[in-house]
Every structure is written in C-alpha cells, then in structure tokens.
C-alpha cells in the first residue's frame, strides 16, 4: 500500500478528515522548503503538495501565478526541488505541476526521479486520463500514485475514467475556475463528491477556493479531506519572513486542522 493510501486508512480508522496543504517549491526560498514542510506537519497537516513552478500556469489564479513566478525568478530548477524534497520524510508528498517541465527529459525519467526523491504521488494540472496513458504507465512502474482532477463539468463517463485512473485519492475541483480564494457556496462541490462516491471507494478531497477554517469545516462535512493552496502561499509570502513566522505558521495549520474535526 502506498504511503498516501496508508495515511487515508489511518484517518478513516480514526474517523478523521485530511488536511492537505500546498506550497510552491522555491517560494519562499527553496532552502526553507523542508523547514516549512516540517512546520506544516507539526501543525497537523496530513499530506503536503509541493508545487513545481511553471512559467505558464493556466489552471492557477493570481496568488499561485505570482508565487510560481517568484520561484522562477529565484532560479529554482526541478533537480533542486527534488533534492530538497528528498530531505522531508514526515508526511506523504504529492508533487503538483504542469506537463511541460515533466516531459522535458521524459515522463518515465521524471517519474523515476520523483520517486527516488521520496515523492509519493503526482498531480499534473493539464493532463487528463484520456491523454495520460503513457504517464499512468510510467507512474505505475515508478510506484508513484497518480491523482487526477474531477471537475463539476465532467461527464459521468469522464468521472469514471478519473476514478479508474487515480491512485491515493481523487481531487474534486470545487467549481469551474482557477485556484484561489473566493466566497462560494459548496453545493456544487458536494454534488460532485456525491457523483464521485458512486464510482469509487477512493478518498475524495476537495480543493480550489478553500481558505479559512469555516470553508474547511463546511467541506469536511461531505468530503474526505480539503486541499488548501493559494491562501497558504499568500500567508507564507506575507508572514514566513525567513523563518521568523514559523510558530505562527504552526498555529495557522493547527486552526485549519481543528476545523477538519468539525
């Protein structure tokens, strides 16, 4: 069983929901990544997503775009990200990024390198299962979990493909749109999670637009976990302050984790 599946099983046994937190590799500085991930673990995060910066992130809103750009401006390279990530073992790591940097050498090589760095799973924002035959194959042989995104616009056939091709968990996109904070009702997300549950026993986690404990609480009433990205990326930009904000970060994570408990 993968570390991701294992984590969800433990959560399920304890009747708990997952808090999944996203950070961009290289923003704040890449050398701080491990310290940030450790703080997330300390605050109670269950899984972490590490964002591979890309110059043209079409699925991302302003916060992650800006964060990605800052990372690239600092000269962050994929090889350095993987090296840094390999220092962190406390929680399962899901790598999140876009197709082009991953195929630059080859998908097989990327999957192997990521796995060797201790990465447990990967999300490719601009890859869907119907275009992902090769990726699924090479990720399976590298023992890397493939997490695909399900959208409110997905047809039932496509949802079935997403569920069939996903390992670890299914990522339900809460609404049409890009990543980022937004006041929104959660009924569309709830409906999607319901449709997914009819198709798979995999855990279903919801992301896009979740930024405060009240969102976490609302979504955890119907999903197996939440993914928080843009808000954390903004928080780190404003408050990390070269590590001086570490204790505040642990508190921030703790408040989010508490909200998963209802």
């Amino acid at each position: 069983m993968s570390r991701i599946a294992d984590t969800f099983q433990h959560l399920r046994e304890g009747n708990e929901k997952a808090l999944i937190l996203f950070v961009t590799a290289g923003d704040p500085a890449l050398k701080d990544l491990t310290a940030i991930l450790e703080a997330l673990a300390e605050g109670g995060a269950d899984l972490v997503e590490v964002g591979l910066p890309f110059s043209d992130p079409i699925a991302d809103g302003p916060s992650i775009q800006a964060s990605s750009q800052r990372a690239l401006d600092r000269g962050v390279k994929i090889a350095d990200v993987l090296e840094e990530v390999s220092e962190f073992a406390r929680l399962p790591v899901v790598m999140m990024g876009y197709m082009n940097p991953m195929i630059r050498s080859s998908l097989a090589e990327f999957a192997q390198r990521a796995r060797r760095a201790g990465v447990d799973g990967a999300i490719v924002c601009d890859l869907t299962p119907d275009e992902g035959t090769e990726w699924i194959q090479v990720a399976r042989s590298a023992e890397l979990d493939t997490v695909f995104l399900a959208a409110p616009t997905s047809t039932d056939d496509r949802l079935a493909q997403v569920c069939h091709s996903s390992r670890g968990f299914v990522y339900a996109v809460s609404r049409t749109g890009v990543t980022g904070s937004k006041d929104q009702p959660w009924d569309e997300a709830e409906k999607l999670v319901g449709r997914i549950r009819k198709l798979t026993a995999l855990p279903v986690c919801v992301g896009f637009g979740i930024s405060i404990p009240a969102d976490v609480k609302a979504v955890c009433s119907f999903a197996d976990g939440v993914i928080v990205g843009s808000r954390l990326v903004e928080w780190l930009w404003e408050n990390w302050n070269g590590g001086k904000g570490r204790d505040k970060l642990v508190d921030w994570v703790r408040a989010m984790k508490d909200a998963t408990r209802g």
Partner: peptide, 26 residues
C-alpha cells in the same frame, strides 16, 4: 507521447493538454 493516429493529432503533435474542467467543453 501517443503515436497512434487519432483525432486531434498531426503525427505525434497536437492533443488536448488542459485542465479537466475544459475537456467537456472541448
């Protein structure tokens, strides 16, 4: 990359690499 001839491909080129949300519209 998938080498089989299929709609949306010109040899190995083309395809549809977008977020899932857009695929039903495409």
């Amino acid at each position: 990359m998938n080498q089989e001839p299929q709609p949306g491909r010109f040899g190995q080129f083309g395809g549809r690499y977008v977020p899932e949300t857009l695929v039903p519209a495409l």
